[in-house]
Amino acid sequence: MAKTVTNTETARMAELLSGYARAVDARRLRTLQGAALVVVLILVAAWSAEVRPITLFNKIGALTNYLGGTLKLDSGQHVWEDPVEWFWGLGKWLRLLGETLIMAYVGTLTGALIAFILCFTACSNLVRDHRVVFVMRRLLEFGRTVPDLVFALIFVYTFGLGPIPGVMAIAIHTTGALGKLFSEVVENIDMKPVEGITASGGSWVQAIRFAVLPQVQSNFLSYALLRFEINVRGAAVMGFVGAGGIGDELIVSIRKFYNSDVSAILVLIIATVMLIDYLTELARHRLIGAQVRT
């Protein structure tokens, strides 16, 4: 009696074990297939992007040399031994950094305002006409898919060199990016207040003002602040194509091998970006805090 029980148990156990082994094998096979696909993709991409590991291996010393070289003054001293000489152009650079920040601010605010006006027409829950929603979404997609530097290149041609094309490029890109985020926020709202306003005879604009806006305003502000942070980085390289800000000074010093200037300007840019990151994060935490309290 006892023996038969043990036998069936062993048989059952063997069955379970082989089932488990089969399941594991199937999973391993799928993982292997995926890995093989990735390897093939890597090889194709590496061939297309002319990856040369040997050159990299041979020239990696050049990177450390170059980075080390940016930390040496013309006199051969290390930069930290003579900070006054290192930051010789501080006044000019700070003015350009200020211009960069103003570009980012004006561009972000303009873009955010346009996005704010357009986003309500790109939500399927507020606009009945699907064609309007479709067209608005494609328009916003265009604005955010074409990189801001491409807009800047075209605007430099039409508006001339200087910060104006940079600001306009930032504004258009911001409109596209924020418009999408804003309309996604609006599509996730609670529709009951909107129905309430509409039922009591309110117009579309009134419904947005009194039913939608109170639900979305802190999210909107938080996204706009995040975008400002991104745009500060973007504005810092606008000068590469002649569209104002500190980028112009940086690309000239990289191209002409003014090595200590490169490191000085980079230090200033990184410090500014970190400061802006810190400040916007502070502001966003306060916003979220305020939202939780009410």
Partner: peptide, 9 residues
């Protein structure tokens, strides 16, 4: 570009 030269790499 200063290190490995112009190009996609």
């Amino acid at each position: 570009i200063n290190v490995v030269g112009l190009g996609p790499f």
